[in-house]
Nucleic acid binder design. Sequence first.
DNA 1: TCTAGGTTTAATTTACATCA
DNA 2: CTGATGTAAATTAAACCTAG
Length: 221
Amino acid sequence: MNHQDQMMLMSQLFPACEYTQIISQQGEKKPKPRRKRSKKNKGGENSANDMNKKRKLSDEQVNILEENFGNEHKLESEKKDRLAMELGLDPRQVAVWFQNRRARWKNKKLEEEYFSLKKIHESTILEKCLLETKLREQHSEALKLREQLSEAEKEIQRLREPFERVTSSSSSTSSMSQSVEVVDPPFLGEFGVDNGYDDDVFFMPNETCYYNGMEWISLYM
DNA sequence: TCTAGGTTTAATTTACATCA
DNA sequence: CTGATGTAAATTAAACCTAG
């Protein structure tokens, strides 16, 4: 595999940006500072020559170059010469055109990638907002249910009181018998509200610790 | 119609890699 | 090591476009 083949393979395996990164990372060398640009030959031997002036390529030339670029982003030397002959251009011009075209292609790709990532980012933010809203709703629902539970427990206690008075007076006649109080198991709902543990404590099913109410809320704010 | 300022693009420069 | 050749990146400058 010669150098050109290797380059070709690299460019196929990696998008232009990664490909150039790989090249520049080889050897981990810092890029040397660019040398001062030498003055162009303004007024030099060829500057007066109109042939040196920049000529825009014709539509047909550009079409054929684009067609070739569509097939392959890099040119082998032979193909470059053939194409140059076909278009009536200097092989150097064809090489330069491909070089510039690759640079434009890379810029376009980067731009596309930027907008695609931006889109993903925006939709993720939106999803996060929706999930946060949902969580707040669920939390206020949990608080409401907890309030209801507390009320229900108070009501149970209130209804029990007459019965407990009777059993405690009758137990005084028999010291052996204790009040057989049916103790309800602590209610541990979805959020593990356990009044037997602490007044305002939540147990997270997937975690091994307890949070008080404000801490629990702040986890989701 | 003219023109200043912006955009596009052909060409150049530079640094670096690879190979014979 | 050296020179030839290739590339990417940065830059320049000619040609072109457009608002005012």
